[in-house]
Nucleic acid binder design. Structure first.
Lengths: 239, 239
DNA sequence: GTCTATAAATAGATAGAC
DNA sequence: GTCTATCTATTTATAGAC
């Protein structure tokens, strides 16, 4: 390919398989003290933080490297010392993102009472929307645009996890502890409703003049989502 | 401002108030036959269609004017004859979008039985996700990024409509025909769950290997969303 | 590791002929 | 209305000194 330069905007898509975060270790070898490595990771982290804030607001192509550098308080040239390209930064951000996004699902305690367990999951997802709105929005942006970079992870890590949790939900229903419901659509409904308050925050704000910044609203959202999702799932005699 | 040229990527935001679609009438006056106007509108429409497909997939900054032109089968120069700028195209697309997006809400028949009415609204929203996935996704993209161009419309047209429908839902509850629920959160839940299958189609596909292209899946989604949303809302003795 | 140029190319937009 | 040619700012990325 010779001279590397700006590539056409489109093939965002071709996207390789594993989505591996190129670590500093890939750089020309040099004796690295623990301290040195720590400083490098700190700087990389600061750049990724700045990039998340910008990518989630303006998208990949709406954000310039210059902006990321300025926000992270490093020079543009310096940024290119830590990351091979803008796309490399983007991949780095997405990589951290998926882990964060998956965390509440991993922690979903399905070995308890279903109503309690699902209620707690909803609470944690709402909390995630509150504490990581930018992560939620960038994840959303990436999904909406076809998830070119995450597709592989979705089909492996995510699918495995979701399949396992779906099985437990089926078990609850079979045991008569939960009304009959398709577990996948239930999980989608929980994701959709809880993420909505982060992803569509501008719409919520336009209509209600508030958002997850307000702690009382967080409580209100949690209560209402729990009610909507759970009240139809209790076991009733008239079924 | 003199020479017009590319503006900095960011202030996507400053965004004026009304979001008016600059019509062909704004062009230098010339005697226009009905036929002529029709051809102009047809061409503008074709460009907007192409732009919707691309903007919804790659975002505003990820799409080039060249691509829009090629997709619409016109030359780039010709496109600039019909639209003053790339942003002008974008505003044109968004303007059509909001109308489409609002349509099912307008048609929401709240003067019938609540369970039936809300069930029908869900059905129509799922159908919209099926028939207008690109519109749904671009709307989502715009919301996630802060809705700079739609903010005004959200605070006026949308708010007015939603407030009105919320009042009816409250009426149902007061009349004992519907369980007690916050109408806004109910509406958010319906939007979130139904739009999810268009906006997060790539995630749904990664997990279930299907999507709204499949008519049976459309039915499945409709049934499940209706069940999840509605089953908790019926009036029960044990309340 | 960090900085000062600067290269290379894209992409939005216009001029002006037909 | 449509096309060919072109202008120019922006932006990604690199070279090379310190």
């Amino acid at each position: 390919m010779g001279r590397l330069s700006r590539r056409p905007a489109q093939p965002d898509a071709p996207a390789g398989k594993p989505l591996a975060l190129k670590t500093a270790a890939a750089r020309p070898a040099r004796p690295k003290t623990a301290n040195r490595l720590k400083r490098i990771e700190a700087k990389r982290g600061a750049i990724l933080d700045a990039a998340l804030a910008l990518f989630s607001r303006y998208g990949l192509h709406g954000t310039t490297v210059e902006q990321i550098a300025r926000t992270a308080a490093v020079s543009k040239t310096n940024l290119f010392y830590y990351f091979a390209s803008k796309e490399d930064v983007y991949v780095g951000v997405l990589s951290r993102l998926l882990d964060q996004w998956l965390e509440p699902l991993r922690d979903l305690q399905l070995d308890t009472d279903p109503i309690e367990g699902i209620g707690e999951y909803i609470r944690r997802k709402v909390l995630f929307s509150r504490t990581h709105p930018e992560a939620s929005r960038l994840f959303c942006l990436e999904m909406v645009q076809g998830a070119p970079l995450l597709r592989h992870e979705l089909e492996t890590s995510l699918k495995q996890l979701v399949d396992a949790k779906a099985e437990v939900i089926r078990g609850w229903t079979a045991a008569g502890k939960l009304g009959p419901i398709d577990p996948y659509h239930l999980i989608f409904a929980i994701w959709a409703t809880t993420q909505h308050y982060a992803d569509f925050a501008s719409q919520v704000d336009a209509l209600l003049n508030t958002g997850l910044d307000d702690e009382r609203f967080v409580e209100e959202v949690t209560r209402n989502v729990q009610r909507i999702i759970l009240d139809g799932l209790r076991v009733r005699k008239d079924d």
